[in-house]
Structures are given as C-alpha cells and as structure tokens.
Design a protein around this nucleic acid. Structure first.
Length: 426
RNA sequence: GUGGGAGUAGCUCAACUGGCAGAGCAUCGGACUGUGGCUCCGACGGUUGCGGGUUCGAUUCCCGUCUCCCACCCCA
C-alpha cells in the first residue's frame, strides 16, 4: 500500500478545523500589530541556508533536503537547491532582493511548511509547519530598539492567551553580539578544560565541538559543574547589556512574565542578543512551542545592507498539539440537512439548497433514494440543527416540513420564510 | 544518525507454553413502508506492516526491512 512518506502526514477533518482556527486567530492578532503576510518560495538556492543558518549547524550539515536541479542547456550548470528548513533566511533574502529598506521597518509574517530530515517523533515531523514573523529594517527605522523585542514578545504572549493555551513559560536570554560570544566561547572552553573529564560523554564531546550546548545537559551529576561555569551575562558588552535590560523593563511594564534563563542558547548562527523560547508542558521532549531571537547581522551576511531584525517561529504542529490538551475544536456543523423524499424531488431540493446557502447557511444536501428514516439518521450523525423535508406533499402545499433536531419541534414553513426560520434557530 | 518499545478488521484492543484469528465501537440491513438519537437482532469486514527462515503447523520463535511511539542528538 502506498503511504505518506516517513515524517510526513495527512491532516484530516476534523483536525483541520483546529488548524484553521489557529491560523485565523493568528492572522487576527498579526492584523492588530500591523504585520503583513509574505510568501516566499518553498525551495531556495542551497547557499542561502548554508550562509544564513550556518554551515556547521545540524540543520545545514545533516538535515536539509538538497538536490541538484536539472539543466536544460549543457552550458547551464545544475543549481543546488534545497527545501527550506526555516523561513527567516528566505524573508531576509526577499528583503534584500526587493530593497524593502525603502519601506522603513518591515513587519512581515508567514505561515507555511518547512522541511528537515530528522528522525520523526512526537511534535517533530520532516514536513512541519511554522507560523513566523520578522521585524526588520534600517536601524534608523527603529529596528534595533529593545522596544521591538518587547513588542514581539508581548505579541506572542497575547497570541497564546488568545488561543487559550495555558501554562506557557517565556524563557529569555541575551547571547550578546558576535564579539561577546567569541570571547565567551573561549572563556567557556577554558573553564571546561579541567572539569570536562568528570562530565558525561555528551558533555565531553560538546566541550570541544560546541561548548554552549553543555548548558542543555540534563544529567544530574553534571549540574553542580555546570552551575560553576561562567555565564554569557558576564560577557555582554555595555550596549548589549543595556539592550537586554530595556527589553525586560518594557515587558515588566506591560505585564508579561519573564523567566530569565542564562542557560538558553539557540542553534542557528545568525542569532544575536535577544534569544527566547516559549515552552509548554505536556508536549513531551519537544517542549519548545516556539523560538526566536534577534539577528542583527543576517542581512549583511547575505550581502545586503545593515538591517537589524528580530523574529520568531512557532511550531504550528506543536501548537495544535498543545491546543488539543485543552479544548477540542468544533468543526462547523450543518445548519440544515435537506432531505428530498422520493423520485424527482432532488431538483426542488437542489433549488432550496442553493437558496439557503446564498443566505450563508451551511446546508447539506441529501439523496432522494434515501428512505426518510435514513435521512434522519444521516442528519443526526452530521449534527445538523434542522432537517428540511422535501416531499410531494410539501411541494404541492408550497410549504416544507422543518424539524429542529435538537428540540424535536416540527413546523410547516413557507418557502420564503425558510432561511429566516433556520437562522432564528441559532 | 544512536538506543528502546510497538505494529492483528475503518478505530480501540484480545488471542495461555507454537494448535480453527476474536470482541467492542463504526459501517450496512432489519425490527420500524413520511420522522433521528435509545434498544434488540443480523450482516459485512483480515496478505496478523512487508520479506525470508525454523516447524507437521507461526499472530506467537528467529533474521532482515518499513512505519509509528518513547528517549538521545538537535530543533519549531
């Protein structure tokens, strides 16, 4: 049997109703913050990602779907293309390509699939969906201001509350600028040298390859050692330190609770200063429901002008997972089930369906070969509020039997009154 | 990529130490010829994930493989 390939899946009703609910709410929130939608291609030149995300990151070095494009002319060299593993790089590429700096501060959001070739598990898929936003532009447009960071974080808090997601935690840190991080990395490496031998195998490896990752360690025995390690906060230069402080002050002023976590590090190369994650219990090991941060140097890394920015990506799959814990989304139910009764009645039923649907009612059209009992059963199963019987008697009389399936009340209603009567039944 | 668990009807799951593949729900039909939900009766439904091996005989044991789940790595 043919199956969806590993790590991909079909989203079926009624679950799609939940996805639509999420996306509608998200668009609504973005609207209030004056964000506008951007849609970038689902695949890009490979080098966009290797340069932006970082050649050495796991995402680029082992998780990308990359292929060489077919060439039409021999003179053309096959281009290396990649399914996007994230969307920030594409947005910044578009920013540069279309010279969006002319517009001042850009506030863009996207919703769409991303692709990473990882081992699937709960909340992790090879085709997964991200809802993200980016605020970027010339520094003169205010893009570098801590107010932008706070605005993004406050938006996210609003969004999660709006969706009815409870028990989220905002983990916040500053990882400084590239300069700070280089100094810090060196200090960390030095501090780890004498103690690494006493740590777990993973940490011994990290101490060499990626010292920052030591902070992700969950082995209890290692914790006392980790506690003693120098923190990035001690290595922030004055502007970075002040920036971080101001972000927290604004969040405090607007009443968004923050958990400063100086062990929070982010994986992609382009992040600077503010780094954050919103976590949620009951998601299993993949407890980060969204993540993001500032990327002040990214535009320049891609050959563009200076364009400080900050953004985030929500794992929509994980968001939906968290939402399922609380409320079961209700798929819209038919307002009325139209039951044609007997041969030739389907024409009149179709006319009525057309009319009622034009009144913005959800109408399900039955089948004239069904016995009335079966029509009732189907209507009940669909959760229709009304059933409308279209039989010979009704057509002759010019009035139709309309039964409220919840109350059991049945009345005879003239054609012209049908839509109003059904709407009133809400 | 690494380690562990699981795959049996559309769904949720049984099947002792290797011995006729089952139940509930769902679906369809009937009880009930223009009135649903409840109840009762009946029917349909299977390459036991796939491929090989051991055996008189494999859902069961062995090997391989695929997929999902859990954890690691990493990330959303």
């Amino acid at each position: 049997m043919l199956k969806a390939v590993r790590g991909t899946r079909d989203l079926l009703p009624p679950e799609t109703a939940l996805w639509n609910f999420v996306e509608a709410a998200v668009r609504d929130v973005f609207r209030a913050y004056n964000f506008h939608e951007i849609r970038t291609p689902i695949f890009e030149e490979t080098q966009l990602f290797s340069r932006a995300v970082g050649e050495e990151t796991d995402v680029v070095s082992k998780e990308m779907y990359t292929w060489e494009d077919r060439t039409r002319a021999e003179s053309e060299k096959g281009q290396s293309l990649t399914l996007r593993p994230e969307n920030t790089a594409g947005v910044v590429r578009a920013y540069i390509e279309h010279k969006l700096w002319d517009r001042g501060l850009n506030k863009l959001y996207y919703i769409g699939p991303q692709f990473r070739r990882e081992r699937p598990q709960k909340g992790r898929y090879r085709q997964f969906y991200q809802i993200g936003a980016e605020m970027l532009g010339p520094a003169t447009a205010g893009s570098e201001s801590p107010a932008r960071d706070a605005e993004i974080l406050e938006l996210l808090a609003t969004l999660l509350d709006r969706l009815g997601i409870e028990n989220w935690t905002l983990e916040l840190n500053s990882i400084g600028c590239a300069n700070d991080r280089a100094k810090y990395n060196e200090a960390l490496r030095k501090a780890l040298e004498p103690v690494a031998a006493k740590m777990c195998a993973d940490c011994q490896r990290r101490a060499v390859t990626n010292p920052l990752r030591v902070f992700d360690c969950k082995v209890p025995e290692d914790q006392p050692i980790i506690e003693e390690l120098p923190r990035i906060s001690q290595y922030l230069d004055e502007p970075c330190r002040k920036h971080f402080e101001q972000v927290q002050e604004i969040l405090n002023a607007v009443g968004v609770a923050v958990h400063v976590n100086d062990r929070l590090v982010r994986g992609l190369d382009y992040y600077t200063r503010t780094a954050f994650e919103f976590t949620h219990g009951a998601l299993g090991a993949q407890n980060a429901i969204l993540g993001g941060g500032r990327y002040d140097g990214l535009s320049e890394m891609l050959g563009g002008p200076s364009a400080p920015g900050i953004g985030f990506a929500i794992g929509e799959d994980r968001l939906v997972l968290a939402l399922k814990e609380n409320a079961e989304a209700v798929q819209p139910k038919p307002d009325v089930y139209i039951a044609p009764l007997g041969a030739g009645m389907d024409r009149e039923a179709a006319r009525l369906a057309r009319e009622l649907r034009r009144h913005d009612l959800i109408a399900e059209l039955g089948d004239e070969t069904f016995r009335l009992k079966k029509s009732f059963e189907v209507a009940s199963k669909l959760g229709a509020r009304f059933i409308l019987i279209v039989g010979e008697n009704e057509v002759k009389a010019g009035a139709f039997a309309l039964k409220n399936l919840e109350s059991g009340e049945q009345v005879s209603v003239a054609r012209a009154e049908l839509a109003r009567k059904i709407q009133a039944g809400h």
